[in-house]
Design a protein around this nucleic acid. Structure first.
Length: 531
RNA sequence: GCGCCCAUCGUCUAGUGGUUAGGACUCAAGGUUUUCAUCCUUGCAACCGGAGUUCGAUUCUCCGUGGGCGCGCCA
């Protein structure tokens, strides 16, 4: 019988700035996985870099998560408070011989360095390796690794180094094919009892080994051990390094699945060895593809739209953004795209995550946002609209009843909240008439006359949809033009634009006084033949 | 430079050893609508290249090419 441990995942951002769209996507995937499996979603704030971590960043982080409704289970862990535990772990590693002291380059003290273990379950033999070495640079072999120089195409020396474990069965040869050195007993070297510097080496041979782990989205991952370096886990200042803190805390929080950005793949090869050295079983890993900008490049500080808060101020709905971001690098496998939280939770699996980077498409996001806005409860829509309206002078302190009616009328045709900028004509009398509309619909033969007649007729017309329509149609019939032909001229006259909701409804909302005043203004000042 | 990873319409993606390679956004053309939006119909548009395996490769393998990531006493 297999006992399956309850899933525990975490989002572990470092609060050094605004929350990046890629970061929050990692949070979303973690959250989805936790909810899908009935596990727990933890938050760990990695604020060990005290100089760059700010309270403001911590606050915006929590805001962004709350906005996207990413509810956290359990206590939030602040990594800065775990420093003692991290240092203790480093001490144990050093005591057991798994880590060693490293003299600081600037003589400021000793750092602690984790040595890639000589043996591990994660290693796998891949056969012999042969490397050409630059003869003028001596090869050094010590418990801290092997340093050597390869030869570039132009004959220059390229300095390289790798952990000692990467060079099992190492042999160094000179130009006469004489073996100058053989790593016969790694124990002696590992214990720091012997160190070698060998000159005039032109070739090195060793048994290549690689580190292996199974990634839930990328599959089997391998990396040659000789390309891996030992890892500083405590700085010479005495501060624990990310790698140590990260692994220690994941152990303490009993994290079962680490779901994070692709940029951490390389760390994983070393982290699993750290787990090993601490006698812990590594968690499962899932590395998510990166999100890139419209140029196909990673988001940088120059991309203003990379921060979660920006999406909010630009008028996106959190559920729409959540839905869209979920679809970046993941798909349910059928043709569904607009999915509710529940549907997303039900459908989400790590197996279906892609492993190629994907680009944001703001147009598609906006389209989806429009769908979400249209379905929002009126009161929720009003909140967002009110916020966006407050950006405009004419949009503050508006009549509540009118505002509600306008929202009702316009909700279905609003894609982004800032689109409410076009609602001016409902709330203000300072209108800027669309010149194209004026030319096309008002400065036409007969329009002035018909509008005048309509104006007169409206004095005795109820401002309700049906009577308005009837009155307009009567004029049209009298002038022998198609019903509806007069609507656009009227629209331009009373709203100053060519687009909007139904004309009759719009006029009702505008009310008699405003509608007639604008009609008067238009007849007097805007009509007449254009030249 | 070295290492790891990736590659289907412009973009997000589905999919298969034999399919008219499907959907969505965008764009274009129609229809509905008093206009706009919604909605509906139609259209444009993709398997990076080359070898190999195979009766057959977009799919499997290898080699290129392109892209991303990593190579810190940052996280």
């Amino acid at each position: 019988m297999i006992e399956t441990k309850a899933v525990r995942v975490r989002f572990a951002p470092s609060p050094t700035g605004h929350v990046h769209i890629g970061n929050i996507r990692a949070a979303i995937f973690n959250w989805l996985y936790a909810r899908h499996t009935g596990g727990e979603f933890l938050l760990r704030v990695e604020d060990t870099d005290l100089e760059r971590s700010t309270d403001e960043a911590k606050a915006t982080l929590r805001e962004a998560m709350a906005w996207l409704k990413l509810d956290v289970d359990g206590e939030v862990m602040y990594q800065s408070q775990r420093r003692a535990a991290h240092l203790a772990a480093a001490g144990e590693l050093e005591a057991s011989g798994a880590a060693y002291a490293l003299a600081g380059a600037d003589n400021k003290g000793e750092a602690v360095c984790f040595r890639m273990p000589w043996d591990s379950k994660a290693y796998e033999k891949v056969g012999p390796a042969k490397l050409d070495v630059h003869p003028e640079v001596p090869v050094t072999v010590s418990h801290a690794g092997v340093k050597y120089a390869l030869v570039s195409k132009k004959g220059k020396a390229i300095e390289e180094s790798g952990c000692l474990a990467g060079f099992s069965g190492l042999r160094l040869y000179d130009a006469n094919d004489v073996c100058l050195y053989e790593l016969a007993s790694p124990e002696t070297v590992l214990a720091g009892k012997a160190e070698f510097t060998v000159e005039h080496v032109v070739r090195m041979e060793f048994q290549r080994r690689q580190v292996v782990f199974e990634d839930l989205v990328k599959g089997r991952m391998t990396k040659p051990l000789d390309g891996i370096k030992d890892l500083v886990i405590v700085r010479s200042t005495g501060a624990p390094v990310f790698h140590l803190a990260n692994v220690c805390d994941d152990i303490v929080q009993e994290i079962t699945h680490i779901i994070r950005g692709d940029d951490h793949v390389e760390n994983t090869f070393r982290h699993i060895l750290l787990y090993d050295a601490m006698d812990q079983k590594p968690p499962a890993y899932a590395h998510l593809p990166m999100i890139v900008n419209a140029q196909g490049k990673p988001y940088s500080k120059r991309d203003g739209d990379a921060y979660v808060g920006d999406f909010r101020t630009r008028g996106f709905d959190p559920d729409a953004l959540f839905n869209y971001l979920t679809l970046l690098g993941w798909a349910p496998g059928d043709d569904r795209e607009k999915l509710s939280r529940e549907e997303l939770v039900a459908a989400f699996t790590l197996q279906r995550v892609r492993s190629a980077p994907s680009q944001m498409d703001l147009k598609k996001l906006a389209h989806m946002n429009g769908q979400y806005l249209a379905e929002l409860p009126l009161d929720t829509f009003m909140e967002g609209a009110r916020e966006a309206l407050a950006e405009h002078d004419w949009g503050r302190g508006v009549n509540e009843e009118l505002f509600r009616s306008v929202c009702e009328l316009m909700q279905s045709r609003t894609q982004l909240y800032p689109d409410v900028a076009v609602w001016t004509y409902f709330f203000s009398d300072e209108l800027e008439y669309d010149p194209k509309g004026v030319r096309k619909f008002l400065q036409k033969e007969g329009v002035q006359e018909m509008l005048s007649e309509l104006r007169a007729a409206l004095d005795s017309t109820d401002f309700e949809e049906a009577p308005l329509e009837a009155a307009i149609h009567a004029i049209e019939r009298a002038h022998d033009i198609k019903e509806g032909k007069l609507n656009q001229p009227i629209r331009v006259a009373v709203t100053a634009t060519m687009v909007g909701a139904g004309l009759y409804e719009t006029m009702v909302l505008l009310g008699r006084e405003r509608s007639l005043a604008r009609l008067d203004y238009a007849i007097e000042n805007l009509c007449g033949e254009g030249e």
